[in-house]
């Protein structure tokens, strides 16, 4: 190969351009290689969700918290000799889940950026959308696992109550039967997805968690305060209040098209929009 060294200060002429069509250049034979199947990426992302101390302890903490709260409710019920329903335990657990599972979802996304392992993940699979989808699926898996654990706890707690106060314990329930629990599963997945979307949008763990909690705690109050000014304002705000819009769906009282419309509009605002921009950002981002 010829050399083209130059004195400093003068702009060097470009080196010989590569041959057109790369006719002389050796070709990479990729015909025998199949792409990485999606299920394998899901398995990898699943493993990544618990193979670090931080990930493992977050999962353990979710389990412990659910157990503690349900045990506390059981003890209080027994002390006050109040009626105990199996489904009550289940629904108490979901309240916790909607706080902790979004944090888990945030961390699935943002850890790649704070630890800079995205450089490796996206070098091994340049089709970044597949990795993002695999992560979301893993987050759904953890939502389902958490719900199963909640119900397992609920059964244990109810069993204890049934022994202690058989007359006051019911294995059915007033709050709803098991099919009524299915909307809750969907609600948990959607709430987790808000966390996931914020993680993708901000790519920063503390920022995404703070914004999620602001959304969760502050927003309902702010919307209520604004709505208190004028009734028509309160009516309009119902269209962007996702949590309020979901309540008829959750208690099975959803009938009108307007109710569905409010869910769709508010879900678009709080889930689709941040998720869309977040994914767009991840797909285009320069990974350093």
């Amino acid at each position: 190969m010829t050399s083209t060294p130059l004195t400093p200060g003068t702009p060097p002429p470009p080196p010989p351009p590569p041959p057109p069509g790369a006719a002389q250049a050796p070709m990479l034979n990729v015909s025998d290689t199949s792409g990485i199947p999606f299920w394998r990426l899901v398995l990898v992302e699943f493993r990544k969700s618990y193979d670090t101390r931080a990930g493992m302890w977050l999962l353990i903490a979710i389990g412990i918290l659910v157990g503690l709260v349900e045990a506390f409710v059981l003890i209080m019920s027994l002390v006050h000799s109040s009626q105990v329903y199996l489904t009550d335990f289940g629904f108490i657990g979901t309240g916790l889940g909607s706080l902790l599972l979004p944090v888990l979802a945030v961390m699935l996304v943002t850890t790649e950026w704070s630890q800079r392992s995205a450089m490796v993940s996206f070098a091994l699979e340049p089709r970044r959308i597949k990795i993002v989808m695999a992560k979301w699926l893993v987050a759904i898996v953890w939502v389902l696992v958490t719900l199963v654990v909640m119900w397992a706890f609920a059964v244990v707690m109810t069993a204890i109550a049934a022994v202690a106060q058989p007359d006051l314990t019911s294995w059915s329930g007033t709050s709803g039967s098991l099919p009524a629990f299915l909307p809750t599963v969907l609600d948990q997945i959607l709430t987790m997805t808000i966390g996931f979307a914020l993680g993708a949008l901000l790519l920063n763990t503390p920022a995404a968690i703070v914004v999620f909690f602001l959304y969760w705690y502050l927003l309902p109050g702010v919307l209520a305060a604004i709505g208190a000014i004028r009734p028509w304002l309160a009516h309009a705000l119902e269209w962007i209040n996702f949590r309020v819009a979901m309540s008829p769906f959750l208690d099975g009282s959803i009938h009108t098209g307007e109710q569905w419309g409010k869910i769709l509009v508010s879900a678009f605002l709080w889930i689709a929009l941040p998720l869309g921009f977040g994914i767009w950002r991840i797909l285009r981002a320069e990974v350093k």
Binding site: G35, K48, T52, R116, M119, A123, L124, P126
Partner: peptide
């Protein structure tokens, strides 16, 4: 980006510290 399973064709080391420190 068009190489299927690029790790089987191209070995890349850009920054050895760009990994999760807890693994």
């Amino acid at each position: 980006a068009d190489i299927p399973n690029p790790g089987r064709h191209v070995g890349v080391l850009l920054d050895a510290s760009a990994q999760h420190k807890g693994r």
